[in-house]
Structures are given as structure tokens and as C-alpha cells.
Amino acid sequence: MVSTEAKLKERIKELTCLYEVTSIIVNSDYDLLGTSLEAIAYCLKKAWQFEHDTEVALKSGDYDIKTEEFKADMIYIKSDIKVFNKLEGFIKVGYPKKKYEQADFLEEEEKLLENVALAVGNLLERKQVHDSEAAIKRQVERADRLHILGEITAGIAHELNTPLANILGFTELLKERVTDPKASRDLDKIVDNAIFSREVVKKLMFFACEMPQQMKSVALIPVVENVLKLLGPSLRTKNIKLIKSFNEQKIELRADTVQLTQVLFNLIMNAIYFSPKAGKIHVAVDSNGKSIQIRIADEGPGIDPENEDKVFEPFFTTKPLGDGSGLGLSVVHGIINSHKGTISHSSNTPKGTIFTIDLPKL
């Protein structure tokens, strides 16, 4: 029979554990949550009746924590971890099978484990809320940056258009009056560079949604097929396998055909550029309710976490110098925005990037 003193000693251990667990949770750093969960596991280890033989396992999502001697064949009691009423893991407290029986666990210990599992679930809920708030804040900040960039870009584009038109016009006039072949070649170079600059300005105006649009009813699948046909040689050069999946053949939306083609061309061309040889690119089109979703997935190196918020900004590129101007994705973003749609990116599995476009259905 257990003495009153022994029972009191066990209650003190349990209360101390609960207090320490609460302190750990209150002082948790959401970026170092694994460290807090490990501290909770070792805190539980000290609270059990036979603490020198007690081992703890805690698993939830990406967290898988075990004390040194925890083994799968131990006898144990277990309590589930629930996050927003959804089962997300468990905590097990065990003894070596050779020395103990299930009856050696105390009823109070089971209640303690339930309380700790509940507290861990609450901590994980707060972590999810914190992460969601941080993600929303980043999205708002990014939208603000892009809006400001759009206004600045539109102003720059308008300011550059007139001098570029003058350069082209006066250069053409000079070409008519110049007879020296070398001078004529130099003037041709001026014209070529002015035309290139004008194309950059045009892309800037696309990004800023300043280009006039010809919106009409467009059949989406033929546009996608046409872009894939145009890019066929590039796919074959790198021996890339193209996977297409369209849940409907007759999908219509209100769009500018030229701009929609430019969006698809840019995204698929990027996927080809970053894909390894003999890789795969998946182009999927889904029509659900009032929206259309286009997904383009590659098996490239993916987007560095440090660059995730910059990919749609003008002049940002990870391509080597001379391979890209950094305007492709910013133009895509501007066009999709002007079509009242959204574009986002996520990681592919096991590697690569997925760009997802959501557009309103006709």
C-alpha cells in the first residue's frame, strides 16, 4: 500500500511538471518550437513515479521527439494531440516492458498526460495562427510594394516613350542623308537598341497595366495548345517530357488573347529554362464553378526562400547576366492582375516550382 507521504510526493512532482510545462509554453519562440517540445518531453520524464526508467515520445507534424532510451516495444500510456479539433499527433510515456506492467501507471499520471497534450495542442494552434498572420502580413506588404512599383514604373515608361520615339525618328531621317557605310551601320545599331529599349518600356507598361487591352471571349485550351506547339522545339532540345491534364476541353474566359498567350509563354519558357534535361513539366487546367485554375509545375532547383517575395518584382532575376531582364514574371503578374485574377507560386515535390493562376470564368 502506498503511503500518504509517497502519494503527496507524486502529486508535487505532477504539479511541478504542469507548472514547468506552462512556463515553457509561455516563453516559447515560435521559430524554435522543436526546442520547446523537447523541453516538455524531458519535463514529463521527471514527473512519473519511476522517473529513472521513464521515457517519452512526442510526435506532431514535422516534430518527432524521443528521450534517449525510448523504444517501440515499451509499455506506455498515450494521449492524443489535437490542433483545432483535428488529430495532429500524440505523446507517449513508457516504461521498459521487462520491469513494469500497465498497472504501474497511476490514474493521476494519465490525467497529467492529457493536460500536457491539451497544452501542447494549444501551443501548436497558436503557432499556426502566428504563421498565418505572418503570411498575410507578407502578402499585404508585397501587394503594397508591387502597387508602388506599378505607379513608379508607369511614370518611367511614359517619360521614356517620347525620347525613344524621337531617337528612332531622327535616326531614320539621318540614315536617309548619310552615305558613309560605316556611319550607316552605326545608325542601324542606334535603331536596334532604341527598338530594344522600346520593348523594355512596353514590358514595363504591361507590368503597370498601362497597355490597352482587347478583351473578348477566349477558348483557353486552344491558346494553351498553341503556346505548347510554339515551345515544342525548346522542349525537345532538353528532352523534357510534357504532361498535360485538362479536366474540360471547352473552357472560356474573358481575356486579351495576346496577353494571355504572353503569360503562358513566359511561365512555360521559364519552366523549360530551369528544368533539368529529361525532366518533366506538368501543365494542368481545371475549371471549377466560377473559376479557372492553370498550374505549371517543373522539376528545377525551385525558388530560394529568400527570393519568394521578390519573384514578381521588376528587374529581379536569378538567371545569369544576359539570359533575362527580370521583367518576365512582373509582366505576367501585371497581366493577370488586369484580368482580375491571381498568380502564386509554391514548391513542387520532390523538387521544383509550381506557378498557379486563378482566373474568373466567363
Rank of each mutant, 00 (worst) to 15 (best):
T261A: 08
Q262W: 07
I136A: 15
E210Y: 03
D256L: 05
R185G: 02
I303T: 13
S197F: 07
D309G: 12
T317G: 10
S245I: 12
E108P: 01
T261V: 05
L15T: 09
T353W: 00
K13I: 13
N239G: 04
L187P: 00
L264K: 01
L32H: 11
A154W: 11
F50G: 05
L160V: 00
S330R: 04
F196G: 09
A208S: 11
I243W: 05
R254L: 10
K9P: 00
P233A: 04
I221N: 07
L44T: 04
A157R: 10
M1V: 04
T179R: 07
K280W: 01
E248V: 01
I251V: 12
T153F: 00
A72E: 13
L253E: 03
K82W: 04
I268H: 05
V224Q: 05
F84V: 03
A41Q: 07
L123F: 02
L327M: 15
H158Y: 12
D80W: 00
L267V: 04
D180T: 09
G341T: 02
D80N: 10
R295E: 13
M215D: 08
G322H: 11
K7T: 09
S347Y: 01
N161D: 11
L118Y: 09
N270H: 08
C43A: 06
L362Q: 12
G155K: 12
I190S: 05
K241A: 12
D104Q: 11
E20S: 08
I136V: 14
K46G: 13
H130W: 11
E14N: 07
L44S: 03
E110D: 11
T16G: 07
